[in-house]
């Protein structure tokens, strides 16, 4: 029996050692962070998400989205995340202080989502020109060559979306296809979420990349937007309804095999709306003092336009 006590003490001690080192001390270091704020309390980042977005996080967790999608951007020396325009800067602990659970993810069978909300087009553009956008939209094709050849890609932004980073708004109003030279290289390296779009689909009818309509369609029929996608379809997040009078405003515009039978429409249910609200709220682009921002240099301001 003499060895028993020292054995138990040793067993306890070694685990306590690792617990203190990997759970307790980090908690002292980064376990009580506050949002970053200006001196006068404005411009707080991050902020807790809205009710729908929080519920959307529940839906995200319940359906295991984090098993394929990560939500962390690595620094430029550690991976190609920033080159892929998944973020302007690496993620920092402060980005996640209101996340419960913090869905960092550890596999990427799907692209990183930390800034998927930021990469959405501005609302006005998405609403105004869902059809016209498709031609300007994700020409970042699977192979680099056609993408560089496409000058219309990621056309310079109109004044109203001055706040968007250039790579984030491929769905520009087709009115001003003056591509600035700095943006084509970005187009090549863009997220490539849907390389097959312009080829496979006709320009009309495809929602703007990462807009809410795009997300709904992507959840319902991923391969209608990108034939190379490996994502399962989440049709149970949608309802199939008889069209009464007029089609609903948020009914999905589907074609081919995905479209419902005549007289029916597909609308997202509340879980789908919350999930998309959550996705649209994912935005880590706000600069943090402790992290270097790797934003690509802004193109020289053309007269009347100066993207941020």
């Amino acid at each position: 029996m003499k060895g028993f006590t020292s054995l138990v003490l040793g067993i306890f001690g070694t685990l306590a050692f690792s617990w203190i080192g990997l759970a307790y001390i980090p908690n002292l270091q980064i376990g009580h962070l506050d949002p970053q704020m200006e001196e006068d309390g404005s411009d707080a980042y991050p902020v807790p998400k809205s009710g729908m977005a929080e519920r959307g996080r529940r839906v995200y967790v319940a359906n295991g989205c984090f098993y394929c999608h990560s939500e962390q951007v690595r620094a430029d020396y550690a991976g190609a995340d920033i080159d892929r325009k998944w973020g302007d800067r690496r993620s920092a602990p402060r980005d996640y202080i209101f996340d419960r659970p913090a869905l960092l993810g550890r596999l990427r069978m799907g692209p990183d989502l930390s800034n998927i909300g930021k990469r959405a087009p501005a609302e006005a553009e998405a609403a105004a020109s869902p059809a016209a956008n498709a031609s300007a939209s994700p020409a970042p094709a699977g192979s680099p060559a056609p993408a560089t050849a496409n000058p219309v890609t990621a056309a310079s932004t109109p004044a109203s979306s001055a706040a968007q980073s250039p790579a984030a708004s491929p769905a520009s109003a087709a009115a001003n296809p003056a591509a600035s030279p700095a943006q084509s290289p970005m187009a090549t390296a863009s997220p490539g979420a849907s390389p097959g779009v312009t080829a496979a689909n006709s320009p009309s009818g495809t929602p703007a990349l990462y807009s809410t309509a795009w997300h709904y369609q992507h959840l319902y029929a991923p391969r209608s937007l990108n034939i190379d996608s490996n994502m399962p379809a989440y049709r149970f997040l949608f309802d199939k309804r008889h069209i009464g009078g007029e089609p609903a405003a948020d009914a999905l515009k589907l074609r081919g095999n995905d479209a419902p039978t005549e007289g029916y429409e597909i609308i997202p249910n509340y879980d789908a709306k919350c999930l998309v609200a959550y996705l649209m709220s994912l935005d880590q682009s706000h600069p943090l003092k402790e992290v270097k921002s790797m934003a690509a240099p802004p193109s020289p301001p053309a007269p009347g336009k100066a993207p941020q």
């Binding site: 430029d76 270097k292 921002s293 790797m294 240099p297 802004p298």
Partner: peptide, 16 residues
């Protein structure tokens, strides 16, 4: 090298 390149034109400046 990578850091310097990234901190080059325009990017990489901290708010402070």
């Amino acid at each position: 090298a990578k850091k310097a390149a990234a901190a080059g034109p325009g990017g990489g400046q901290q708010a402070a």
